[in-house]
Design a protein around this nucleic acid. Structure first.
Length: 477
RNA sequence: GGUCCGUUCGUCUAGCCAGGUCAGGACGCCAGGUUUUCAUCCUGGUAACACGGGUUCAAAUCCCGUACGGACUACCA
């Protein structure tokens, strides 16, 4: 079997979409699983919408996900160039080859004319296909059109007849040429259309497996026809199911966040994103759902790809992200979390102090963007009590008085010392359970919920604890 | 309209190709346990084969039809 070569071919017309990210991941997984090559190709033949900035962000987002490539615009390779805008001459050469062999023809019809005739056909309940208007143009006609200033496109001629190809997900798929219109392969400005460029590139770049979204399934017969017209080997196709929004419609701008960048900015980890996206349409034979990149590579197999579209379930993503947050190296989490704290105005110069804080609150968040809110309550500052009643009731005040006198002359202040103090307070006041702990918690953090108290106490330090307890006392009366 | 693809718990899915398990797991949700509280963590529970015909001793699984959903039908990709 020849070498496995797959490609991810995004258009630089926006940020990396989660659907495309999943496509990229599946391509990458297959390449790495089979020891093949991953090729990154930029499909920027739509000059109107493509920008170099978007190409850059696309590359960054892929890298963030941990998807790398062996050949691409920034890496080079033996099958370049890897930007379609730099391959225009190649497409023109091949298009003219089809012209010469009579498999394609010049068409001088304007968009308006085509549209009008299409509508008319529809009115007659016929397929609104290209009607063959320019199949047999006389020299005079051509001259006339040229005089009018018309620039021709090159159309590929589609003949009736069965077109079938194998798809590793859908098995054998068949179309009939009679339902496919003669399509444009070279525009009037001599640039190639998507269906043409993709075939030339996939053939010339020796792509063995075309792994892409199911929305391309209907384009495939056109491409198969082109592969055959040139005598190229037809690659194996793998059309993966779509990702849908909560309303079952194709994921789009209407659904809010759907770009990889959105998730990154909210504090989702690349590992979680990778894991979650990989599991949309693929499953491990083990049934496990928390898998390392290595496991994914080892186990990846097209036979386990699902056929049906998947809804993007953000609750599950949150759960998964929380899991990665709690099961990754704390320094790694800290590196990713620091920017979020900095943005919220935290002084992040004392890394060790912040680390303790992050370690304490990591149990209760599932996105890094939630870090600042939880860390805030570990920093002594202006405190607003969630529940004043608990702070100012008689029992609580007794606890505070006793607590304060216990820490009056204490020298060592850590978790154990704190626990010891609370124990003593309990013995002396006879107050226990939530009536003992809750007042202390609210006095120190202002909140009824939070990380373990001993951890908080240690982070606050003795002086802050004194200050906060005093404050809870003073308020009375 | 036409062509093609799809349809298992609310969601992601296993099982389907090589018919025969109470249709399994995960998220969510609910209950219990752990915890000073919340969260984490542990245990248990809830809930699905779109519908109708066939084929068969037996169908989620094979065949046909219907419904629903999606994609494509551009000089976008």
């Amino acid at each position: 079997m020849s070498e496995v070569r797959v490609r991810f071919a995004p258009s630089p017309t926006g940020y990396l979409h989660v659907g495309n990210a999943r496509t990229a991941i599946l391509n990458w997984l297959f390449a790495r699983h089979s020891g093949g090559k991953m090729i990154l190709r930029i499909e920027d033949t739509d000059a109107e919408r493509s920008t170099v900035e978007f190409e850059q962000t696309l590359l960054q987002d892929l890298a963030w996900l941990g998807v790398d490539w062996d050949e691409g615009p920034d890496k080079g390779g033996n099958f370049g160039p890897y930007r379609q805008s730099e391959r225009l001459g190649i497409y023109q050469k091949y298009a003219h080859q089809l012209l010469e062999t009579g498999k394609a023809f010049h068409c001088y019809c304007t968009k308006e004319e085509i549209e009008a005739r299409g509508k008319a056909a529809l009115a007659r309940r016929e397929d609104p296909h290209y009607d063959g208007h320019c199949y047999y143009l006389t020299e005079e006609h051509v001259e006339q059109y040229k005089k009018e200033g018309r620039k021709p496109v090159i159309r590929f001629r589609v003949h009736p007849g069965e077109i079938s190809f194998s798809d590793l997900v859908r098995k054998n798929v068949q179309f009939d040429g009679s339902h496919i219109s003669d399509f444009v392969i070279l525009r009037s400005d001599s640039t190639a259309t998507y269906n043409f460029a993709v075939v030339i590139d996939d053939a010339l770049m020796k792509i063995s497996h075309v792994i892409r979204g199911e929305d391309h399934l209907s384009n495939t017969p056109k491409q198969v026809l082109l592969f055959k017209a040139f005598g190229f080997d037809v690659p194996v196709f793998v059309h993966i199911p779509m990702i849908l929004g909560e309303d079952r419609a194709k994921l789009s701008k209407r659904h809010g966040d759907n770009q990889v960048r959105d998730y990154r900015e909210k504090g989702y980890l690349p590992e979680a994103m990778f894991n979650f996206l990989s599991l949309l349409g693929w499953s491990s034979p083990s049934g496990e759902e928390l898998l390392s990149r290595q496991r994914f590579i080892e186990e990846f197999d097209f036979s386990r790809l699902s056929k049906s579209a998947a809804i993007f379930n953000s609750e599950k993503l949150d759960w998964m992200n929380g899991w990665y947050l709690r099961n990754s190296d704390i320094d790694y989490i800290l590196d990713l979390g620091l920017p979020f704290l900095k943005k919220s105005g935290f002084d992040i110069s004392d890394r060790e102090a912040i680390k303790k804080c992050v370690r304490a609150v990591i149990e209760r968040i599932d996105r890094l963007e939630q870090l600042p809110d939880w860390c805030r309550l570990i920093y002594a500052g202006e405190i607003k009590y969630d529940n004043e009643e608990i702070v100012f009731n008689e029992g609580s005040q007794k606890v505070f008085i006793r607590f304060l006198s216990e820490i009056e002359n204490i020298s060592q202040w850590d978790k154990d010392a704190f626990l010891q103090v609370v124990k003593t307070v309990q013995k002396e006041t006879g107050i226990k359970g939530r009536f003992l702990w809750m007042p202390i918690r609210i006095a120190l953090t202002g909140k009824e919920h939070g990380p373990e108290l001993p951890v908080i106490v240690e982070l606050l330090g003795l002086e802050n604890c004194r200050k906060l307890i005093k404050k809870a006392l003073k308020k009375q009366g």
